[in-house]
Design a protein around this nucleic acid. Structure first.
Lengths: 337, 337
DNA sequence: GTGAAAGCGCTAACAA
DNA sequence: TTGTTAGCGCTTTCAC
């Protein structure tokens, strides 16, 4: 026997179907006598409203989707902490979270929405010119972004301020006397498709170097320790070799420190390291890394929260660029003579 | 104007609603002439089937839920790999994935199901006597587990064989001459509620020690580097202090190695470390850790795949206890004299 | 305050 | 081979 429906409740309470619906929603006054009977019947039957049917009737699912292309990709390991943050926000407001990975074709985004499964979505890995954004905007579909593109009018988003972040790192190292830097970024694939933060951080690096009139080289790098190890080796072979590295790639920090050690060099005496990554990762290496703390979780939470507020009809504009402070741990120091 | 419905398509193609439905599902023969017209109309209108409505009619959502209690708690990154694996399986079969965190009360599990939002679920952090399992089983609701309880009849699951895993670690270290071991586990809270792998690994540790007639001590530990640092300090203060540690807690490996270094000791000369964690984590520390590779992703994938096969009506029984090999890296060596 | 009935967009008998 | 129609379980207008 299947689960009881509203009709069952109505029959048992001896009232009309609509009365049951209204006692539940409170959208119209119900005499307390009837209300009692209905609630009793609900209790007796162990009735649970069927969210799906409700969604069909109201066109609201109370579920949002997180669009996170690299979540299943082989190439790039995702920053899963984002998901954790998003969940925090959805839980708080009793929303469901549907995880969605990369549409083969960007059109598929639309497809997802049309299905009626979700009320809105949070976009990750936003590209500078993101076709998904075009579609969504054109369809006036509710969405927010973790990240941002070139043109973001009327879109609420949260992102790390990579301009600020990278400049801060470069300035910090330059002030310590370093004149040859390296920037270890993520997979070049992400860069090639124009992912916002990849392009911005690279540009910011070039910019900052020019401003301080120092040298620097960028290395794109797959998200595994081995790749980091190799990248570091080739960097150390350069002449002049960098005396400091800025690393955005959380998965390779182990490979980098290892390559440095294997070379007989030490951190920070010979080489300084500054990360743009989470404190957890920073604390995993020896020595713990000086970083700009990448607030993955907080960003996930904010991105989702913005969406939920939109869905609740609130009208507002938030385009937040976070500027977390530099936390000096033990991987950075003055340039060796 | 809202999205076109099947009725719109039918009208435009000059056929009945059901004809459209059937051309789409292929559940009854359609003359190719009519099929053409229908497909044309669909194309013209840019029609997309409404998954929600379909789900209500068929009682199948093609979505599963992952029940992962601690997903929003502090402990995160390494274990989130499970999610990534689950997604791989669901993507493959074109299922959706709904993420669900801890029900306040275990009854809530049922609530979720009754809503009709998902076809089945994958349970994580299974306790030895798990009330969720009771309910689900009693309701004959489709589910699989990543983990397992005391009694698992007729339930398909995948789990790491902690018995084997811990024994392997202990034997390996004992063979290297170590006589005083430490086992660094996860939060005692998980242990206290009877989470299967927590209890099993602890028991296995005691067991293995007894078998080899050596000493050992267990430390439960929160999932942050600082906690690992402190736990290690107190361990090193013991007399006799352990000469080798087995670590299940992926978040603290950095703290452990740091505490050891700060003490002026070195790995593996003075202290050996063996992890039960993913290669990624193993490669993050200096030196890279000898581990039994915890196949988070593969387990996620298998757990979900089992469920999907069940949902597709396949009848089978799989209760897989994985025994990944020990990978010797550079954190383990003979006991110092 | 309460009830009856018309949808939400689709599937699946049942007819023809 | 195709059309008609009755649901799926709920919300919501409209009448009483």
């Amino acid at each position: 026997m299947s689960a009881p429906t509203m009709a069952d409740v109505a029959k048992r309470a001896g009232v009309a179907l609509s009365t049951v619906s209204h006692t539940l929603s409170g959208k119209r006054p119900i005499s307390s006598e009837v209300k009692q009977r209905v609630l009793q019947a609900i209790e007796d039957l162990g009735y649970q409203p069927h969210a799906l049917a409700r969604a069909l009737a109201t066109k609201q699912t109370r579920t949002i989707a997180l669009l996170y292309p690299s979540l299943t990709s082989e190439m790039t390991e995702p920053h899963l902490e984002f998901v954790s943050g998003v969940l925090r926000a959805t839980n708080l407001k009793k929303y469901g979270l549907l995880l969605w990975t990369t549409p083969e074709e960007d059109q598929e985004v639309l497809y997802l929405l049309r299905q009626g499964l979700v009320d809105g979505l949070v976009l990750m890995e936003v590209r500078l010119e993101d076709p998904r954004v075009q579609m969504l905007r054109q369809q006036r579909y509710p969405f927010t972004m973790i990240g941002h593109g070139v043109e973001n009018e009327d879109i609420n988003f949260v992102d790390l301020d990579f301009e600020y972040t990278v400049h801060t790192c470069v300035d910090y190292l330059a002030d310590l006397g370093h004149r040859h830097l390296a920037f270890i970024s993520l997979s070049s694939q992400l860069f090639d498709i124009g992912t916002g933060y990849m392009v911005r951080s690279e540009q910011a690096f070039r910019h900052a170097l020019a401003q301080r009139e120092i040298e620097g080289v960028t290395r794109f790098c797959e998200t595994n320790a081995q790749a980091g190890y190799e990248a570091t080796q080739t960097l150390l072979n350069l002449d002049p070799a960098p005396t400091a590295m800025i690393v955005l790639n959380a998965w390779v920090s182990g490979g980098i420190t290892r390559a440095i050690h294997d070379r007989g060099l030490s951190i920070p005496a010979d080489i300084s390291l500054v990360g743009i990554l989470s404190p957890q990762v920073a604390e995993m290496t020896v020595p713990p890394l000086t970083t700009i703390d990448f607030p993955y979780k907080a960003m996930g939470e904010m991105g989702a929260e913005l969406l939920l507020r939109q869905l609740e009809g609130e009208v507002f504009s938030v385009q937040e660029l976070l500027k977390p402070p530099l936390t000096v741990r033990h991987s950075s120091g003055p340039c060796p003579p």
